[in-house]
């Protein structure tokens, strides 16, 4: 009986507590990311943004959530009901499970697996299913067109994301995310030798999360709301949460790969007193501000230009950079281990 307690029940309870300790801050972050987005874009357009509910409009996300919760869930005619409901759930689920491998601080990671980078890549490549299924199951032309666009876009930009990841992995010699941060602790942050890759990864991240200027799958001016057009109430809210959680996740990935994860920017006295998790959150917020800034600044890309950028600019460049990195590491005697 004691064996059952120490062997199964207690570890399970600890893991569940850890999962809650990750999921709850992420969801709060998502709620306040929507608030930050409206405030930042408001400030950039000389407006005030939400400022009515609570002090400085701080309770606006709660009010939005409550509103969505009490709306009616509408099913379109001849919609494939099961798939229609599974799609937003899948999007939300995938946006949450990816957090399992993200190292927030030294040892602050739920699953310190050896193939962490591949896991993140696999989960982000699954994200496209939520969108395709939603577009198909809605039985709507706008939805379907949005889903088709999104599928092509996400598959295209995944390729350059993959090559960027490989170039970083070459410098580390491990697929473990904690090891990647440790490698940057010994050397320099990878943004310094790999600055072009950082830019490519950031732009591909915008495309992968369907953010402006690559928000063609939603494209209000032509597709109404793309794959989300038939969704209302909680299914819509789940898409929304999933999309914003993916933005935070993409920022966390960039932080880990290029900005040294939880490391402090200057490795001496006043800076190393600050806990690593605070540096991590600050870096993520910095990147998220970049996401919002781009949205307030850039006009939407045309679809053929989007494809050209992915396949004819980013893919060749990241491929050449990968070969270059391998060459420098091999002939400079810098290979890890």
């Amino acid at each position: 009986m004691a064996n059952l307690w120490t062997g199964y029940v207690w570890p399970t309870a600890i893991t569940v507590a850890e999962i809650i300790a990750i999921i709850v801050p992420v969801l709060v972050g998502v709620a306040y990311l929507t608030y930050a987005e409206r405030k930042v874009i408001g400030a950039m357009q000389l407006r005030k943004g939400p400022n009515v509910i609570g002090p400085f409009g701080l309770f606006q996300p709660l009010a939005d959530g409550a509103k969505l919760f009490f709306k009616e869930t509408i099913f379109p005619n001849h919609a494939s009901r099961g798939v229609f409901l599974v799609a937003p759930a899948l999007t939300f689920f995938l946006a949450m499970v990816a957090w399992a491998v993200v190292p927030f601080d030294e040892g602050w990671v739920l699953a310190n697996i050896n193939v962490g980078v591949l896991y993140l890549f696999a989960i982000s490549s699954l994200g496209v299913y939520g969108i395709i299924m939603a577009g198909w199951a809605s039985n709507s032309k706008y939805g379907f067109l949005g889903a088709m666009r999104s599928a092509a876009q996400m598959v295209s930009y995944e390729v350059s994301i993959g090559f960027v990841m490989i170039a970083v992995l070459l410098c580390v010699g491990s697929l473990n995310l904690t090891d990647i941060v440790h490698a940057q602790e010994k050397g320099v942050w990878f943004i310094i030798p790999h600055l072009p890759l950082f830019i490519i990864f950031f732009i591909s991240g915008l495309a992968e999360t369907n953010r402006s200027p690559f928000d063609l799958p939603e494209g209000e001016s032509e597709l109404v709301a793309g794959y989300m057009v038939e969704y209302s109430s909680m299914p819509f809210a789940m898409f929304f949460l999933g999309e914003y959680a993916n933005m935070i996740l993409m920022s966390a990935t960039i932080t880990t790969l290029f900005l040294g994860g939880w490391l402090s920017p200057l490795p001496f006295a006043p800076f190393i007193w600050v806990p690593g998790v605070i540096w991590f959150v600050l870096k993520v917020c910095f990147l998220l501000f970049g996401f919002l800034w781009v949205r307030a600044t850039m006009p939407r890309y045309r679809y053929d230009q989007l494809m050209r950028l992915g396949w004819k600019v980013f893919l060749p460049f990241s491929l050449v950079w990968l070969v270059l990195t391998a060459g420098v590491l091999e002939f400079g005697g810098l290979l890890p281990k």
């Binding site: 591949l118 896991y119 696999a122 490549s125 995944e158």
Partner: peptide, 10 residues
């Protein structure tokens, strides 16, 4: 992971 990335994801 490769099964998920290659077969499921692409």
């Amino acid at each position: 992971m490769v099964l998920v990335v290659v077969y499921v994801g692409a």
